[in-house]
Simulated assay, not measured.
Amino acid sequence: MIVKAPVNSLRSAELQCKYGAKEIYLGLRSDKLNRLSFSGRGSIKVDKKGSNSNIESGEELNKIINHCHDKGVSVALAANCPSLPDAMKDGYEEYINEVVELGVDSIIVGDLASLILVRKIVPKDFYVTASVFMESYNIGVVQMLKHLGANEVYIPHHLKYDEIEKICDEGLNIGVFANYGCSFSNGRCGLIHRWGEEIDMGIPCRAKFDISSKNGSIKEAYPILDFGLDCCLCTIKKLMDFNIHSLKLIDRATPVEQVLPFTKVYSTAIKMFQEGKNLDEIKAMAFKTVPWWENQFCATKNCRYMDNCYSSYYI
């Protein structure tokens, strides 16, 4: 199992490699689109240094690829726009051809049209990943994606152990999410945010709302829409036993300093489990490495892939 980390600049790529990521993923800005992008991410600034959520040029991407390959780290290019209408097809094809020529190791796609088109464009042995936008909640979807040429599939973080185990028997590399994620259906939620719009609405599902009752009482700052499951530290060993290929960290639209604690903890945890360390030792490492980890995740039982706030609503 490896850690797959988000990158939005050469600097962030250097840091992710340093702290244990074995694969990085990124998007490339395209002149074909204005605020949106072929990478499934809006073009927004992520820090005061001017870094964008997408890599600004092919020249910068080439530097990132060279650095990562020198460190033994692979590079995945996000081409996972949630849909590919005819008007975007030519630009999308140019986007794919450009990044393949620059030397990326794999392409991430977000819908069936993209998957079919990419398989026609790239070499037969080129690695293609089906994004969580495909909503692969069951074995049938995974089988279909395999038939269409996907080498790897990312599954939603709402699934549980037994569901993940069955999906892992299908003969594809399976990826799961390690930190944060959508409160609802990954990539298909209607609460659109952070696409580079003029008004920044924040992240609605994670926001706190004032709620008034019929009798006039008000409950202030309550996260009524937040069903987020933000930690999988206690489930890593079981995921490793299922032969999960990678733990993916989000997201490219934040400064790299906010993601690095997760990169360090999860990459170290994988190594420690491989060395035979137990969960208590792994948790002690996490709490020492990131002092806020225990209060933010463990104290709130914010646990992924096991019985949780999501599974309690299953029918």
Results as ranks from 00 to 15, higher is better:
Ile2Val: 09
Val3Pro: 01
Ala5Ile: 06
Ser9Ala: 08
Tyr19Glu: 09
Ala21Ile: 07
Ala21Cys: 08
Glu23Gln: 15
Leu26Val: 11
Leu28Gln: 00
Arg29Val: 10
Arg29Met: 10
Lys32Ser: 15
Leu36Met: 07
Ser37Lys: 03
Phe38Thr: 04
Gly42Glu: 07
Ser43Gln: 11
Lys45Ile: 10
Lys48Glu: 14
Lys49Asn: 09
Glu59Trp: 09
Glu59Val: 14
Asn62Gly: 10
Lys63Gly: 04
Lys63Leu: 15
Asp70Tyr: 02
Lys71Asp: 02
Lys71Asn: 15
Val75His: 02
Ala76Asn: 09
Asn80Trp: 08
Asn80Glu: 08
Ala87Phe: 14
Lys89Asn: 03
Glu93Asp: 04
Glu94Ala: 04
Ile96Leu: 11
Glu98Tyr: 07
Val99Tyr: 01
Val100Phe: 11
Val104Gly: 06
Ser106Tyr: 02
Ile107Cys: 01
Ile107Gly: 01
Gly110Lys: 14
Leu115Met: 12
Leu115Trp: 01
Leu115Ser: 02
Val122Ser: 03
Tyr127Asp: 04
Tyr127Thr: 02
Val128Pro: 06
Thr129Ile: 13
Ala130Asn: 03
Ser131Leu: 03
Tyr137Glu: 06
Ala150Phe: 04
Tyr154Glu: 09
Ile155Ala: 02
His157Cys: 02
His158Ser: 15
Leu159Asn: 00
Lys160Tyr: 03
Tyr161Arg: 11
Glu165Trp: 04
Cys168Lys: 06
Cys168His: 06
Asp169Glu: 15
Gly175Cys: 08
Ala178Ser: 14
Asn179Pro: 00
Asn179Lys: 12
Tyr180Met: 07
Tyr180Lys: 05
Tyr180Pro: 00
Gly181Cys: 07
Ser183Trp: 01
Ser185Tyr: 15
Gly190Asn: 14
Gly190His: 10
Leu191Tyr: 15
Ile192Val: 12
His193Lys: 04
Gly202Tyr: 13
Cys205Tyr: 08
Ala207Lys: 14
Ile211Phe: 08
Lys214Asn: 08
Asn215Gln: 13
Asn215Trp: 05
Leu225Lys: 04
Phe227Trp: 08
Cys232His: 00
Cys234Lys: 06
Lys238Asn: 03
Met240Gln: 08
Phe242Met: 12
Phe242His: 05
Leu247Pro: 02
Leu247Gly: 07
Ala253Trp: 01
Ala253Val: 02
Glu257Val: 04
Glu257Ile: 06
Thr263Gly: 00
Lys264Tyr: 15
Thr268Leu: 04
Thr268Ile: 03
Lys271Gly: 02
Met272Asn: 00
Phe273Arg: 00
Lys277Ile: 07
Asp280Glu: 14
Ile282Pro: 00
Lys283Leu: 13
Lys288Leu: 13
Asn295Gln: 10
Gln296Ser: 10
Phe297Val: 04
Lys301Thr: 11
Ser312Phe: 13
Tyr313Asn: 00
Tyr314Met: 09
Tyr314Ser: 09
Ile315Ala: 13
